[in-house]
Design a protein around this nucleic acid. Structure first.
Lengths: 197, 197
DNA sequence: ACCTGAACACCGTTCAAGT
DNA sequence: ACCTGAACACCGTTCAAGT
């Protein structure tokens, strides 16, 4: 509040003439950036729609690094975000998922988007510096205490592995798993289903 | 700091005789609770090891709700957490994954654990109150603006869906996908692999 | 209609001073 | 060895007062 007002060359108190409180301000900011998410179309092929939505969410998170923690903890959701949820559920149920299943699918995909991007954003080293960082910290990773981390660091130092994980890896595992699940004739027995708790 | 010291019946400044700063305190706290994670054994069956680790992490997060945001943003990791990473990578490479693959697998699973649990912890309504909440807010979810959310809320009100998502749903999709991936003879072509970016 | 000064109830942290 | 008072540089927010 104080910093934002300062950037406008004004005192913090004047902001309260335009916005009820900090929470409402965050709400407005989130709705603004949420427009950068590619909203699924109801009649689109669901895998591709979910894929585009997930990738565009992640790119938005990378552009606006402050978003993920705020979006995940926001209680009241703005219209743009509600429209995204509606379109996502709509695309899934139009493609044969039940409302319950659509909820599980959206939850699983969003978990990956949030979890992956939060790890990515909080990782202290840039991908281009992984090799140097591994070389720097290798002496501190005791090969007797942490044999596998030591070996992994060696792989990065030697160039056998660049140390870069991929957002698509987990996302495609989920999408392929969901496709198999949908095509299964007898879903009840052989595939993951929500349990209690 | 001030609140913690107050709980000890002491002033905030005295804490700095026992701990360098807030960050070191958080480090010690995280290492303490990290001991509640079930660390994979190197020679165990990897799916079951990953499953137990993921579920125990989530249960720990639910017991100590302050952990996930701090753990994900912590730069320097304590010994207990390093040992968990080492054991997880160790279990995977012992079961036939390369070091690079083990890194992708751990990243994908952790993304799910973090993302799912953060959503779960921040959801404003308790599962037992979903039905009441849906009934309360149904009039505010315009069926013309948000037709699918409206229909979904109706399902919860009617009892057709209890509104409860499941941690295992996404986790088992990942584990099954990984198992298929591992059994594939020609991995390069038909399965998800890390790409650039 | 919009902005502000003073104030309140908070943070983490430092440092000289106490026992 | 441990604790503290005073101080510094921060927060979000309220409210009466100004233009």
């Amino acid at each position: 509040m104080r910093r934002l007002a300062g950037a406008f060359g004004v005192t913090a108190m004047s902001l309260y003439n335009h916005v009820a409180n900090k929470n409402e301000l965050i709400d407005l900011m989130l709705n603004q950036v949420a427009a950068e998410i590619e909203i699924p179309s109801v009649d689109g092929q669901w895998q591709e729609m979910m894929r585009r939505r997930a990738h565009s969410m992640r790119r938005m998170f990378l552009r606006h690094r402050w978003v993920p923690p705020l979006l995940i903890s926001q209680i009241t959701l703005g219209q743009v975000i509600l429209r995204d949820i509606d379109a996502t559920v709509g695309c899934l149920v139009t493609n044969g998922f039940s409302y319950a299943e659509a909820d599980w699918v959206r939850n699983a995909i969003d978990s990956h988007v949030y979890g992956y991007t939060l790890q990515e954003l909080n990782f202290p080293v840039e991908p281009s510096a992984y090799r140097d960082a591994a070389a720097t910290y290798l002496p501190e990773i005791s090969s007797s205490d942490y044999p596998f981390m030591h070996a992994a660091a060696l792989q990065i130092v030697s160039g056998a592995y660049d140390g870069v994980t991929d957002f698509s890896f987990g996302l495609e595992l989920l999408l392929e798993g969901l496709e198999n699940w949908q095509h299964q004739t007898n879903r009840q027995t052989s595939v993951p289903r929500p349990r209690s708790g």
